[in-house]
Design a protein around this nucleic acid. Structure first.
Length: 234
DNA sequence: GCAAGGATATCG
DNA sequence: GATATCCTTGCA
């Protein structure tokens, strides 16, 4: 994906990210998902953004150039993948909230199971087996339907922070579909029509207060089955 | 409905 | 150094 797009206004970058592909391609195999849901966090004034306290050890990459990964841990157990946007010096990012699995599905599923085990303080074999069974029964389109689930399925943790997602040689990168193709890669959505983009308030940021809780900065492909959150917000 | 998890930012 | 908080998930 062209870095200039991500270096532009975050909401425009978010629209470009919808329908693009998240690719992890390395010794673990090749996994591809189509991005169907993102959330924008824009500037130090955004009270929902990690940048609201200014530059810190954790959020430093948000203040750098566009196109790099920012992976943080939330609630002590879930990692979340963000794409840094806007020019160098301007802290902003897009949280990848959901992707539709397209390639490497069994590897995505295997890392979901591995992460479920790692998130348990005490892991009796029975619970581990129950996790594995539950995840084995999940339909493909729910494997990465949520920000913590995207990171789990792609095997990402905060150590991935800083990886250049615009470098075609990177083990984790963003790719756009063939320019000639008018069709969405997904079997979902209306044939022969560009998928509609829906904007809603962001999820899980009640602490930020108004106007930030109401800003329609969550973007998704309308009606796509891999979108996370309440069905009313799909 | 709510507990689980640990790093983070901020406060004494 | 202590503590309230957190861009979530899956269970009761």
């Amino acid at each position: 994906m062209d870095r200039a797009v991500l270096a532009g206004p975050t909401l425009a970058a978010g629209r470009a990210l919808l329908g693009a592909f998240l690719v992890r391609d390395d010794a673990t195999g090749r996994r591809v998902g189509q991005i169907v849901e993102v959330e924008a966090y824009i500037g130090e004034v955004d009270r929902a953004s990690h940048a609201r306290f200014g530059r810190t050890a954790r959020n430093g990459v948000m203040f750098g150039p566009a196109g790099h990964a920012y992976v943080y841990l939330v609630y002590g157990m879930h990692a979340c993948l963000n794409v840094v946007t806007e020019p160098d010096g301007s802290p902003a990012a897009l949280l990848i909230r959901a992707v539709e699995p397209l390639e490497g599905i069994e590897r995505l599923r295997a890392d979901r199971v591995a992460r479920a085990g790692a998130n348990r303080r005490d892991t009796p074999a029975s619970r581990a087996a129950a996790d594995a069974e539950r995840i084995a029964r999940l339909p493909d389109h729910r494997l990465a339907s949520g920000p913590g689930l995207v990171a789990a399925a792609f095997g990402l943790d905060p150590a991935w922070t800083g990886v250049d997602l615009c470098d075609p040689a990177s083990p984790l990168r963003l790719e756009v579909g063939p320019a000639s193709s008018e069709q969405p890669a997904s079997r979902h959505g209306t044939a022969n029509a560009a998928p509609r983009i829906r904007a809603t308030p962001r999820i899980g940021i009640g602490y930020a207060g108004e106007p930030w809780t109401s800003r329609p900065w969550r973007l998704c492909l309308a009606g796509h089955p891999s979108v996370s959150g309440p069905s009313g917000l799909r």
